[in-house]
Write a protein that binds this DNA or RNA. Sequence first.
DNA 1: GTGAAAGCGCTAACAG
DNA 2: CTGTTAGCGCTTTCAC
Lengths: 343, 343
Amino acid sequence: MTRRTRRTSGRVTLDDVARRVGVSKITISRALREPWRVSEGLRQRIHAVIDELGYIPNRQAGALASARSRSIALLVPSLSNAVFSEVIRGVDEGFAGSGYQVLLGHTSYSREEEAHLIDTYLSFGVDGFIISGSQHTDSARQRLSRCGLPICEIMELPESPLDMAVGLDHEAAGHALTGALLELGYRRLGFIGARMDYRARRRLEGWQRALTEAGLSTAACLTTESPSDYRLGGQLLGELLEQYPALEMVCCVNDDLAAGALFECQRRGIRVPDQLGLTGYNGLDITEATTPTLSTVITPRRRIGVAAASRMLSRLEGDQGTEVLQDLGFEIALRESTRPAGG
Amino acid sequence: MTRRTRRTSGRVTLDDVARRVGVSKITISRALREPWRVSEGLRQRIHAVIDELGYIPNRQAGALASARSRSIALLVPSLSNAVFSEVIRGVDEGFAGSGYQVLLGHTSYSREEEAHLIDTYLSFGVDGFIISGSQHTDSARQRLSRCGLPICEIMELPESPLDMAVGLDHEAAGHALTGALLELGYRRLGFIGARMDYRARRRLEGWQRALTEAGLSTAACLTTESPSDYRLGGQLLGELLEQYPALEMVCCVNDDLAAGALFECQRRGIRVPDQLGLTGYNGLDITEATTPTLSTVITPRRRIGVAAASRMLSRLEGDQGTEVLQDLGFEIALRESTRPAGG
DNA sequence: GTGAAAGCGCTAACAG
DNA sequence: CTGTTAGCGCTTTCAC
């Protein structure tokens, strides 16, 4: 008995509360998790003592004992992209009041970083994953499918989903937008894109398909792997116009680029939409604020988050669920940056 | 012995690895945490088995046993505000390679939500807190000061910091910006603000002090508690101009509002800066992209994150640290939305 | 350089 | 409605 007692965190534990109340610690535990199984009066005394002592449960111990952490991981490519902040808000909303904690991770658009984060959150013992996109490293796919946790891939509709998926068809959206522009009478269309991830490439493919179907050229297309930002939009627009000065419309792979392109037009004195039409993609706030407002494709970002959370919750509560893929669609918003119909 | 064995997670544990290698589990644990204490050959065999079995350490168990989780909480008001995405990036950078995991939480600008998140992360056993701002509920202040963890308040310079703080003086920044505008010859200045949190109010106070010192009116001031966005910038500008049509300058409490105000000017045909000057605050990307570019105060957002992380790390590694307050300053950027000097 | 034993704080399982 | 016991997977402490 010379063994020194192990240094403890000094924090108030369930045992401290139990001793103070004069019951066993499991009763305290139950009062917190299954209050209906503890008598009214005792429950009140327990809560009084909890407040008095400032007891905060240790979730690590709880998770270790119960093999569930009541937390889920949400992995997005970027936190600076407004698209994902709305997805996050949706997921938060969806989990509000459920008792689940959302652990947020951002992959910086890197599959390797994603794989690393998956391991990290696995080691945190999360009960499920909500992950942007369907493009993972092989080892990440293995880890995910072997861990047996519910997984929801969001934003797009994967060909071979790991488990569940909620998103939209970006190729169809690109195609539909381009189709709408052709109907407005545009014939010489260009495309600029940055950070050409899978979803961005799908939009471009939709644009190409629509033009090809109409017998038009898809040559005026300029893309880069650099991260997207306003200034890049202006720069790409400038480069594209240099090569193709006769363009009457430039489709931008996202709203940031479109806004940047618009600012560049203002700088150069190019009148939008009279001399040049412009479209974005996503329907961020800025598209409704600029002068002129920007035509775009509105994607259901927040709803994707909410739906992912709610499907995750059902799975966590035992439902086996039905559909694998959930398509939330998109909406074409033609505004001031494209010529009016019949114009 | 009829007692059923407890259902385990089914995951590979340290014990599984140990059995396979033929050593005790503590050796595996050491090979991972203190590799230099395990012989070279054994270490290699261990790592081979870890890869083979796909072992992922259980951080909860580790944290429980060691009373440190190697994670810290980063609490920001908002994820959709670009200001904080750069702070987050800075913090991430600062912790990169340290072995610490950053757990991100957003309070939606609510002290109650903040207090709740503090409890949540405390129950996750984080080793420290980095928190935006100095305005907390009483109970949150108590919890934070009693938990004995290192705490870094960021963005501003609190009067009575909980522990450490890294930020800048927003009142001084507001004052300096306004002073610079007075030097450019502006005399009739207005102010619009949204989401008037503590930092926003400090900027306004700086603006007021500068005008008062110059004997000018501070009446043309319009603020709201609503969240800030582009459209609100336009709306507030409109309302302010209705009341004060002779204004020659409108200072916006942040860049979003300033951009929105600029778009509104374009819509109304008000030439910026010829007829009206405009300034923002923070120095977000958009301020360099619009036409005209926006004058603003550049705040060292990313550097604040990096500094907070690095101070947190020193504390976690035992340094008691020296300075409490760290002032990272600001930079006035006069660009195209204000008249040129001497103009 | 490696190991055995004990225990972190909690909950599952069974008992009354 | 409340309690007892065992153990989650890991690290600490002490021992060799």
